[in-house]
Design a protein around this nucleic acid. Sequence first.
RNA 1: GCCGACUUAGCGUAAUAGGUAGCGCAACUGACUUGUAAUCAGUAGGUUGGGGGUUCGAUUCCCUCAGUCGGCACCA
Length: 585
Amino acid sequence: MINIKENAELSVLNHSCAHLLAQAVKHLYPEAKFWVGPVIEEGFYYDIDLGDVTLTEEDLPAIEHEMKKLAKDNKRIIREEISKSEALAKFKDDPYKVDLISRMDDDNTIISCYTQGDFTDLCRGPHVESTKLLKNFKLLKVSGAYWKGDKNNHMLQRIYGICFPTVEELEAHLHELEEQKARDHRRLGKDLGIFMTSDLVGKGLPMYLPNGYIIWEELENYIKEKEKRLGYKHVLTPPLGSIELYKTSGHWEHYQENMFPKMEVDGEEFVLRPMNCPHHMMIYGNEIHSYRDLPIRIGEIARDCRYEASGALKGIERARTFCQNDAHLFVTPEQIKSEFENVVNLILEVYRELNIKDYSFELSLRDPEDKVKYYPDDEMWNNAENTLRKVLDEIGITYTEKIGEAAFYGPKLDVQVKPAVGNPYTLSTCQLDFCLPMRFNLNYIASDGTKKTPVVLHRAILGSIDRFIAYYLEETKGLLPLWLSPIAVNVIPVNNNYHLSYATDLFNKLKELNVRVKLDDREEKLGYKMREAVMQKIPYTVIIGNKETESNTISYRKCGTEDTINMKEEDFINQIITEIKTRKI
RNA sequence: GCCGACUUAGCGUAAUAGGUAGCGCAACUGACUUGUAAUCAGUAGGUUGGGGGUUCGAUUCCCUCAGUCGGCACCA
């Protein structure tokens, strides 16, 4: 999908189109007041205050029509530079523009405006030279947006659109947008029987169906195998805990708005846990540890429950309960670097094996101004952030720093991915924590016999299993690699009367080898069964007919290809087994 | 949570300027015995998301609740 913002020519075009949109809206709704109309990756938008008028998508064609009319007029777009006071006078009837102007640096600032026909807008530019270049656009959607992005402000109406130099490019783009919908994990999740939701169960509470749970189990086994090899010990802890536990950890104070409310049983108060770190702290504290025992690595596919705003819910990508691929590494200060490096290496290894390429590292730091969100201990924070920066620089990965993105207990390295559909999000994370071990009074006996507080690394590689499945479905368009596919091989006899026993023989052999294989022996035509196999995105479909039974071979077709390949049964079985075992992409 | 739209059979959809709903796929039954994305015929399946109001009559209009979707905000 093209990124408009990163393309200089398209940026100018789209930004100019935003002005054209504003001009058209002004014509149709003379009372309209305008905020800003920037270029974004997906095109452009303009935030507009229309007073009591509410736009719906049905109003967009009329606005488009007016824009087309204006574009046809072929008005020159003229730049003009004026002083701040001139600008304030010029836009005195537009409070939003006055707000923008009055917040500009100093009184000597030169402000640029662009005029096209009867419409002038405050703008840094540049723009195309004439409205006639703005013919191939489409208004895509309309929605509310908080003024200045602050939920305490009123809402403006935002109109989104996109513009291209040629009609062909526009149509190709619109076609691509349509195709994107087909790879949405919610669509695929339904079509492929991966998960379901139910109003009666409650929103944001997805349930995995048999096909989905196969994917889940495979991923769980995959990552746990890796963790075991790296010395992790896995545990199982309850998805809720007493409120005292979360007061001790600080979650109750700093994370409460993302938690389900407390519940009372027999005079005790409990919460559904939003994170399982406190449980793992308790497990560490269950024994006395020597410095010789460290690092101690405690892992769990842990169910957590978070109160997510209803508008934020999205299939299994963002739900109110999910299972984190979580682990806590209890280390000495000297071990921070090597353990951190191990985690980064594990992330890179997994991404390589699963063919995840579009990702970036972010160093999430606290916002020192935010006194509510973060555990208050400046010295601890400075120490943690500097340590983490140093470790990252020593490991030699490139990252961007994000202020105000840290966990309440410490800074972290996040791995952001750009999914095929929608906004970027965090998949993997590794967090440095000096805070919780202290709050839980954890310690180890150092070589000099004194008690010392361990440092904790919180880390998740697949993130949550749920989100990872969503991500992977969208990346692969539902055509999963063999080892993750709910059904790996589909065997179809051409004619049950003649080919069923040969087909059943292959089916049994594969089943014996623990391959997820299906025998489609329904009394249907081959074309019909083939169609279903393709729609179900089964990676391998084997056809058994006269040709195969007579030559003692099999023929298969790989989902997504048109070719049929004929080979010896034994070779095919070996190929399948190898592909599963090596987790071939 | 906020702004807006939407909700009709398992799935995808049609219709009614207010007179209780069609179609396709899937399912079931039968025939066909099949060579790479849909064989034919028949049967069954709906309190038109829940509740309330207006009306002689509501699936349609209004209110409300729930859910879904698109954005915003949030995402430790």
